[in-house]
Design a protein around this nucleic acid. Structure first.
Lengths: 206, 206
DNA sequence: TATTGATCTTGACATTGTCTAGATACTGGG
DNA sequence: CCCAGTATCTAGACAATGTCAAGATCAATA
């Protein structure tokens, strides 16, 4: 059920998404080829059209599942962190960075590419979920509803911006300039990143 | 001289770079086509090869001139700003954002694309110049050499990250969610962005 | 069982980047 | 002044790509 066994090929849709993700991480988003994805899935070059309108459709769907895994990466960090509101926000940011490091091409597809259709309901809903998660985390700190509190919403911008900037510069290999960071062990580096994320928030629970 | 008049075509090299930039901003970096660039320059599809090894070569050069204009955008902001160290750093960040807004595809080529050859001397030197500029601005605030002062260098990371994150989220149209920002006039928005940039810096001149 | 529709293959087409061969125009030495 | 040589450009070819149309194959249903 949901994933039936063998109808011509089985669940080609799922296989194509998996193959597309492989293609993405191996070749990068700019060299992505739909025909190679089909070949990777062991199927003819015309087969994907029966499951996705075109390559844009496939990438849109892939970006959507990306957001779900994105949220999971954040949750993994949050489970290992202290439960106070600020530690949880910092952990969320570290998860943001984890995800980007582990899936740079997918991250770029989600945040910097024109190829996915951002109007697609499945994609926009997934992206909205990630955004609402961030709003809730800042709300826990400010103890207000950011949608009614501009100061808190500004912190949402700030926390997002810092996390995103770190993630994007990291996968662009721009942070390797900073030897004090590059030579650091993971734990110490996380501490620095956490501090930077919390610097951005002025609406503390105090 | 430097740009002679008519040798077969004139300074095709320059014309190709200009055409490539047009192509980039009209079609976006992901739909970039070298053949269309040649057509735009009024030349056959094989002509670019005599001035740039391949499309990667052209884009590498384009990214390099991008960094020069990037620095100019920052300088324009700084000329209109107060001369104290903090205002100058904030202005530099606003220039960062100006450049990205005005040239989104070029910005992405410079910071998020795999197509330019980052090992190329002309490109890496241009990028280094932009980085050194940032280091100097933080140094003016901390009154130390960031290369010898980890706290100051952390502020370099922070200032860069905030500026870059804002620029990148802005051109990805991710900040339009924030109606309080989107409905704001440019001056007020700049004030918010400046505050966010300065929040990141803890090593104040105090 | 026959028909219908979903799924997949195959071939075609225009477009792309790059390579090669050849044409054209400038350059400098005789 | 002219000719060889070099830089510049064109034109044609090739493989790879995304998309489309036509046909084949299989499952379910009536």
């Amino acid at each position: 059920m949901a994933s039936k066994s063998n109808y011509h090929h089985g669940d080609l849709r799922r296989v194509l998404l998996a193959a597309a993700e492989e293609e993405l991480s191996e070749k990068g988003g700019e060299a992505f080829s739909l025909r190679r994805v089909a070949k990777r899935a062991g199927v003819s070059h015309g087969a994907p059209a029966h499951h996705f309108k075109d390559s844009r459709g496939l990438l849109t769907e892939l970006a959507a599942v990306g957001y779900q895994r994105f949220i999971e990466a954040q949750q993994r960090r949050q489970q290992d962190a202290a439960t106070d509101a600020e530690s949880q926000l910092a952990a969320s940011g570290l998860g943001y960075i984890d995800f980007a490091s582990a899936n740079p091409a997918l991250f770029r597809l989600m945040f910097s590419s024109e190829r996915p259709d951002k109007e697609s309901p499945v994609l926009s809903k997934s992206a909205d979920a990630a955004f609402e998660k961030l709003v809730n985390e800042v709300a826990r700190i400010s103890k207000t509803d950011p949608y009614c509190d501009q100061r808190a919403m500004t912190d949402v911008v700030a926390a997002w911006t810092i996390s995103h900037g770190l993630a994007d510069l990291l996968i662009a290999d721009r942070l390797s300039r900073f030897s004090f960071l590059a030579d650091m062990n993971a734990t110490d580096r996380d501490a620095i990143f956490s501090e930077l994320i919390l610097r951005a928030c002025t609406v503390r629970s105090s």
